[in-house]
């Protein structure tokens, strides 16, 4: 009788990396559903394209690195990267935008750095930044939320636009963005930025059609959707509360202080928290374990840093939103943060 030899421990708590990544996908559902409600079904096409590209790229890379083709797919991380990138870009962006972004994220940011677990930067955000600086027009072509939009596209019209950059009727995305008065509408954060420079106060800006209730029309609900998904992840212990809380604190506390001193120039914490990619960033992007700090103390510092950079860029930078830049900048600081937040080992405290 021969017995099996195995190293201890001989049991496991049954929460595997693949399963964690699956949970991340489930938790994205409320946010993505709201996004497709407010910005049309384009987001589903983008997700499909991104996932297909990511899977093929991942397989090609593992084969090129002389490993079994499906081995790297097992952990589901490529799929999560692809979805995060797909929901970060405008729903009607041309198909090649998401393909280029995903290829860059998987091939360059992930595999060139040594594959799963070795990448210094968050692949989805690195892909996003590449796209943003290479194709600024396509990447800022967000439609106004469907509730205030003149146009709403059918499934076929959406697909046509993504594939050929025009609706079947020949409108460009640029034209679709026009409001009732014919003026092109931008995202709420963009609107704040441009209108402030034109000398309007926030009170006046909030009267615009882009805003309702607490923050930007549509955007606030999507952010709340991601918040719900994020809380689910915390409840399932997929992520710890340190990064989301640190992120929101790093963003909202300075925003709150600034808002008190200049209520007509600096948007308040609620507007910040429910605008742009805040919640997606706080719960799904900054929490990517590979490129985040590892100790809890380090995670808090890391997240505070991201939140603060987002605040600074939104307030004084050239871009309306800044989650991707902030995450990449903080990624760079991770080795340093890890170095100085290493916990004291048992028996080594004084």
């Amino acid at each position: 009788m021969s017995f099996k030899i195995a190293p201890s421990p001989h049991g496991h708590n049954q929460r595997t990396t693949s399963e964690m990544m699956r949970w991340v996908c489930y938790a994205l559902v409320p946010g993505v559903l709201l996004q497709s409600y407010f910005f049309g079904p384009g987001v589903w096409f983008q997700i499909t394209l991104a996932v297909a590209t990511a899977v093929l790229a991942e397989m090609a890379c593992t084969v090129a690195r002389e490993r079994p083709a499906f081995s790297a797919l097992r952990d589901n991380t490529a799929i999560v990267t692809a979805i995060l990138l797909a929901i970060s870009i405008p729903s009607l962006a041309p198909w090649w935008v998401i393909v280029i972004g995903t290829l860059f994220a998987i091939v360059v940011v992930k595999h060139v750095y040594g594959g799963m677990g070795q990448n210094l930067f968050n692949p989805a955000m690195a892909g996003y930044v590449l796209l943003l600086i290479s194709f600024p027009v396509q990447m800022t072509n967000w439609l106004p939320a469907s509730t205030i939009s003149e146009h709403s596209l059918t499934l076929w019209q959406t697909l046509h636009t993504i594939l050929f950059e025009y609706t079947p009727a020949g409108y460009s995305v640029e034209q679709l963005r026009a409001g009732i008065d014919g003026v092109t509408m931008a995202t709420p954060l963009d609107t704040i930025k441009t209108e402030l420079t034109r000398g309007y106060t926030l009170t006046e800006i909030y009267q615009g059609p882009e805003f309702s209730y607490f923050a930007g029309a549509g955007w606030q609900w999507i952010n709340l959707g991601f918040l719900v998904g994020g809380l689910l992840l915390i409840q399932q212990r997929i992520i710890s509360w340190h990064i989301p809380l640190g992120f929101l604190a790093g963003l909202c506390l300075p925003a709150f202080i600034a808002h008190i001193f200049a209520p007509d120039l600096m948007p308040g914490p609620i507007v910040h928290a429910l605008s742009g990619a805040t919640m997606l960033g706080a719960f799904f992007i900054a929490t990517d374990p590979v490129s985040a700090a590892t100790s809890n103390r380090g995670r808090v510092i890391f997240a505070l840093l991201i939140g603060f950079i987002v605040f600074v860029i939104r307030s004084w930078g050239g871009y309306p939103d800044a989650v991707a830049f902030a995450v990449l900048l903080a990624n760079m600081c991770v080795p340093l943060i890890d170095r100085y937040t290493r916990p004291v080992v048992y028996g080594h405290g004084d």
Partner: peptide
């Protein structure tokens, strides 16, 4: 099978 470390901590 052993997967890569994701530094989840």
């Amino acid at each position: 099978p052993e997967l890569a470390c994701i530094r989840c901590g």
